[in-house]
Amino acid sequence: MEIISFMIAPLAATLILGGILVYFGIHVIKREIVFIDIALAQIAALGGTLAIVLWPETINGGGHEEGHHLIEYLFSLLFTTLAAGLFSLLKSKKIRIPLEALIGISYAVATTAMVIILDKGAGSDVHIHDMLTGAILWVGWDKVLRLAGMVLIVALFHWVFRKNMMNLTDNYDNSSYKSKRKNWWDFLFYFTFGLVIVEAVQVGGILTVFAFLIIPASTTLLFFSTWRARILAGLLLTVILTIPALWVSWTWDLPASPVLILFLGIILIISGLVYQIKKKVT
């Protein structure tokens, strides 16, 4: 009984993450900008770090926990907005450079800039490690509710404007596709995605978020082609796999995020084999 009540918050968090990330994962794989989430997460973190360095008294002065968090969050938000603007601007027919290259460069610059800012080294190793793995087993309800709220808003937005969003991604490399305010929609795509990523990384860590973004979307791509089928299949996959993965991690006292990733990986490999066999048979 104890394990069940203990597991509800992480389980809810994982299911919310899995649901929204499979949707964004399909976008990201179609656009071939797989590493965008790591870059956005890192840029947001750079913003937060900058806030801490600029106003250290709010942290060290004590007492004003809330104020410090607000400034940190606003700076993360500001940097996410700038990054969204940058990425929608950088996708251009006028250059032969794939967007993924510029995403990678932004990621590297954001990470190392953070190392320079934090520098004099102390604690930055630990910080990098924590951001990678997160601690989904120990997540509190406050974070889960925040994540749920943000996901709800973003999902609603994407549902209302689903035509615009899907057309944009389906025609991402199609230079004859013309749409009104194409860059503007592109900006909104990255911005809403960034909002989700900032919350998601707080809950699950960069690595888990990355895995939920690309592995289910790749797996379902083997069997389905429509958006609806892929989203539903991805959701189902997440539900089936999360419970045993969290249970294994809890029972054997292993960190949750690597276990989740391994489970996702195993399912992908099995699906790949099934797909190959099916192809041979037919």
Binding site: V34, S218, L222, I261, L262, G265
Partner: peptide, 27 residues
């Protein structure tokens, strides 16, 4: 063998699984 899934996605998955395993072993 299969160009349905872009190569960059495979790269991401290899990275992810590699790092996940490394984190498990790090313990």
């Amino acid at each position: 063998a299969d160009q349905k899934v872009p190569q960059e996605a495979y790269i991401g998955i290899i990275y992810c699984l590699g790092l996940g395993l490394a984190l498990l072993l790090a313990e």
